[in-house]
């Protein structure tokens, strides 16, 4: 086994398959969890019929979606219309490659992991735009305009916020970041506490990029039918839906790794800690989703450009100054 794993091609294939299977499985049951959670928050039962506690619901959903009629509107751009859902899953999944679960359980230990992550979350707006424009539907088009404006706006605070961990740890590799936190304390509580503020902004920005409540105006169903996916049926819609969950889950995992020390923790093995932290963050996201109303378009943009961007711009010098200051005192 270990000799086989030395062959980069076999190793690559192995990790590709493991990551995709793992992420797909977790994603499927995270939809179950979300529905159950939402149900409980609204004094309902959530899914109960398929299997114990409704646990087989995701399988039933997938079977249902696979048997739906696959419609492509006559006036749509066929090629782009079909390409968009595939690409959106591909981009969302790509992030999984750099998530450091443990020092060894890590598909690709890129020394530019942070850039890869930011590049993919920037790319996420393309399939949305591609699919909506190709549908030739006015609702989709307006929704896509909103999604793109929101996606690229929140990319700015996201990039600036993740600069704080980069300054504090001096690396762009996610696994090195976690290793540094293991040695010097998690970024979330490390002085001068800029990590905490950066985390809040990064977390909000990744919520906005995944178009989740309170940032879901692209899918405002009371105004825009189903947003960018209005014309999509069956599994094509399913892929968009899946990509949203993959994106959310992986954002939680990334936050857990970058700000909460990843695999660092006492007693239990690292993987458990990493998964526990990711799950807690995901639960928090779900909780937020079912507790808040959606923001208006202008409020959303104000929050980004007038609060998040100036705040992150201020965080960078503060962090940098503290780093110099602490070094002067004989620290790192």
């Amino acid at each position: 086994m270990s000799e086989l794993m030395l062959n980069p091609w076999i190793r690559a294939l192995f990790w590709g398959l493991v990551m995709i299977t793992g992420v797909m499985t977790v994603t499927a049951w995270s939809t179950w969890f979300e529905r159950k959670f939402a149900g409980r928050m609204q004094s309902r039962m959530g899914p109960t019929l398929v299997g114990p506690l409704g646990l087989l619901q995701p399988i039933a959903d997938a079977c249902k979606l696979l048997q739906k009629e696959d419609l492509v509107p006559d006036s749509a751009d066929r090629a782009l219309f079909n390409l968009a859902p595939v690409l959106t899953v591909g981009f969302a999944m790509g992030v999984a490659a750099v998530v450091p679960f443990t020092p060894t359980m890590l598909a690709a230990d890129l020394d530019v992991g942070v850039l890869w992550l930011l590049a993919l979350s920037g790319l996420m707006v393309f399939p949305t735009w591609m699919g909506s424009w190709a549908s030739n539907n006015k609702y989709s088009l307006i929704a896509a305009m909103r999604a793109v404006a929101q996606g690229i706006s929140y990319e700015v605070p996201m990039v600036l916020a993740i600069m704080v961990p980069v300054i504090m740890t001096g690396t762009l590799s996610l696994s090195d970041m976690v290793a540094d936190q293991q040695k010097n304390g998690w970024l979330i509580y490390r002085l001068p506490l800029t990590g905490l503020i950066a985390f809040v902004i990064f977390f909000l920005a990744s919520l906005a990029e995944a178009n989740r409540i309170p940032f879901d105006i692209p899918e405002a169903e009371s105004e825009l039918v189903a947003g960018p996916t209005t014309e999509y049926t069956g599994m094509k819609f399913g892929l968009f839906y899946m990509a949203e969950y993959i994106h959310t889950l992986l954002s939680s995992a990334i936050c857990a790794a970058v700000f909460f020390g990843g695999w660092d923790g006492p007693i239990a093995p690292g993987l458990h800690w990493m998964l526990l932290k990711s799950v807690i963050l995901f639960v928090f996201l779900t909780w937020v989703r079912w507790s808040f109303l959606r923001l208006r378009s202008d409020q959303l943009m104000n929050l980004c450009w007038k609060y998040a961007v100036p705040a992150t711009l201020a965080l960078i010098p503060v962090t940098a100054f503290y780093t110099v200051y602490a070094a002067g005192k004989g620290g790192v």
Binding site: W15, G94, L110
Partner: peptide
């Protein structure tokens, strides 16, 4: 070799998406 993994992951994800469709 990490980039080989990335490429494989991308290809597998896209192929899987295509197969589902």
């Amino acid at each position: 070799e990490q980039y080989v993994t990335l490429a494989t992951l991308a290809v597998v994800a896209v192929v899987l998406g295509g197969l589902i469709l």
